[in-house]
Amino acid sequence: MSKALVEMVKGRMREFRREPSAFFFVLFMPLVWMLILGGAFSGGSHPRAAVGWIPSEGEFGARVQQALSSNPDFMLQRGDAAQQRKNLGKGAVDLFIEPTADSRLLYHYDAQHPDAQHVRRWVDETIQTAFGRSNPVISEARPESVPGSRYIDFLLPGLLAFSLLTTSLFGTGMTLVLHRRENLLRRFLTTPLRTHDYILSHLIGRLLIMVLELAVILSAGFLFFGFRIQGSWVAFLGLCMIGTASFTAIAIAAGARMTQTSAYNSLVNLLTLPMMLLSGIWFSRSHFPAWSQDLLQLLPLTALVDGLRHIALEGEGWRDVQGQMGLLALYGILAFLWARKRFRW
C-alpha cells in the first residue's frame, strides 16, 4: 500500500468519525428499524385467530359460542352483522360466523385472503369436534422448534443488506459528488496522487465501516432477539464484503460525473426505493407474481439479501451462494469499468 493510500484511508475514517450525521445514518437507523419491527412482529408465542360471532338466542347458539370461547386458539369478537362486516373489512377478524334459525352455521370470509381459508377449517373442526365428531385416526402434535423462522430472523439479514446498500450509495457516493462540486478533487489532480489510489481509499474506508455496521447490527440482533447465523460466519462476512464492494462501485459509477447533490440524490433514491420493496427486505418477494421472480433475482440487492438469508437462516456456506456472489461481483466489475471511463475529478 502506498504512502498516499494509507494516508487517504486514515482520512476516510476521520471524515466518518467527524461527521455526526453519518454515524446516525449508518449505525443508529438500522438498529431503530430492527427494534421497532422486530418488536412489533415478535408477537405472543401462541398464534390465535380472530373470529367474529353473531350472538343468537337458543341452545344451539350458546353451545357454539361455548365451544369457541373456551378454546384458547380463538379470540371471539361479538357483534351484529353490520359490525362484523366492518370487522372483516378492517381485518379485525378473518372470518365471522352467523348462526341461522335452523341450527346451521354460515361462515363469512374473503376467499381471496389466504389466512381465511385456513381459519375456516380450523373453526369448523373445533366446532364439529365439540359437537361430537370423532376422528377414526389418532393423531398428536409434535412441535419442532426451527431456529431462524421468526420474522426478526427474516428481517435482520434484509436490514443489513439494505443498510450496506444505502451507506454505499448515500454515504460514499454522495461524498464524492460533494467533493467534486467543491473542487476538492481538482486540487488533487495537480499532485502525483493516482486516481486508483483515490478510489481504492474510498473502497477500503467503506469496507472498514462495513465491519462496524456488521458488528453493531449482529450484536444487537443477538442481544435483543437471540439472532444467530446458522451457517458459515466466514461466508457471511465474505458475502457482505463482496456486496459492499459492489454497491460502492455502483455508487461511484452513478455519481461519476455529477456535481449536483440533488441530482445524485434523485438518481439514488430512484434506484434504492423500488429495490427495497422488490428485493424482499421487509416481506418475502414470493408475494410478487411468478413470472417476475427471475427478474427480481437479478437485482443486486436481491442477490445480497438472498445470499445472506441462505447462510444465516438455512445454514448454507460458500458453495451455495456462489450464484449471488458472482452476480454481485459482476455488477461491481461493470460499475468499476464504467466509472473508470467516465470519472471526472
Binding site: 482520512g11 467543491e182 476538492l184 486540487r187
Partner: peptide, 12 residues
C-alpha cells in the same frame, strides 16, 4: 499549485 477556487476537507 494553489488554485483559485478550491476548498479542502473542512473537517481535517
Amino acid at each position: 499549485v494553489q488554485l483559485q477556487e478550491s476548498t479542502l476537507y473542512k473537517k481535517y
